[in-house]
């Protein structure tokens, strides 16, 4: 066909005769593309299954935040009506989403898995005040779902899972812990299923066994060393 082959291509695409001719446009506000599993959206403050807040007001998230967009102030739990299971709770919690770069370092830093990132990001603030999410806006509702604020566009199902995924630097992020439940139970969702295998099942299995061997080797030598003393 030579020069004319291109004309056949465009003609076939016009009538969608070939799989490559299918329309790829998504009519965005009406339809949405499925979001990637590990998308970083806005934060939520999670609660335990009994309704207690996970946040203990330790300010590690604020400390690690490279954009300095988190402001936390902790306070002692009122003895008669505790907010969180521990001694202290997050009294003030604010995130400025005009500054947040969604790096997820706060999620990595959190010792109680209180702050996580949901997949929600389609917001249209009309003023700067709305962009600063206060604690009452960040905490999940009584059903465990993020609060649907008036300027947020999200639909049923887009808020799952709010507790994101296994943290990259967490101990249980190592491949050796694959298949283990890594996330504390949450209000509304209970215990989440373990993370899926990282990529190629065979590859990860061989990696796991290598790590196990290395681990046991290290362990035994350590024992031997200790025994020598």
């Amino acid at each position: 066909m030579g020069y004319l082959a291109g004309f056949a291509v465009t003609f076939q695409k016009m009538f969608k005769w070939t799989p490559s001719g299918e329309t790829v446009t998504v009519q965005y506000p009406k339809d949405k593309r499925p979001k990637p599993e590990r998308l970083h959206g806005r934060h939520v403050l999670n609660r335990y299954e009994d309704g207690m807040e996970k946040c203990i007001g330790c300010e590690l998230c604020a400390g690690v935040c490279p954009a300095k967009c988190i402001y936390v102030r902790g306070a002692d739990n009122p003895p008669d009506d505790p907010v969180s299971p521990g001694e202290r709770y997050g009294f003030v919690y604010e995130i400025n989403f005009l500054r947040c770069i969604h790096c997820d370092l706060c999620v990595e830093a959190c010792p109680t898995e209180a702050i996580t990132e949901s997949k929600l990001f389609e917001f249209s603030f009309t003023n700067r005040q709305d962009a600063i999410y206060t604690k009452s806006e960040l905490v999940v509702g009584d059903d465990g779902r993020p609060q649907h604020l008036p300027w947020e566009d999200w639909r049923d199902g887009e808020d799952i899972p709010t507790s994101a995924w296994m943290r990259a630097t967490a101990a249980h992020g190592a491949a050796i812990h694959e298949g283990e439940v890594a996330w504390s139970a949450e209000l509304g969702y209970g215990t989440r299923a373990p993370e899926p295998a990282q990529s190629d099942a065979d590859l990860s299995r061989s990696l796991v066994s290598e790590v196990r061997e290395a681990d046991s080797g290290y362990q035994s030598s350590d024992d031997a060393h200790g025994g020598g003393h």
Partner: peptide, 10 residues
């Protein structure tokens, strides 16, 4: 419209 059809658009 036609060029959109040929380019997988709407």
């Amino acid at each position: 419209k036609v060029i959109a059809d040929m380019q997988n658009r709407i």
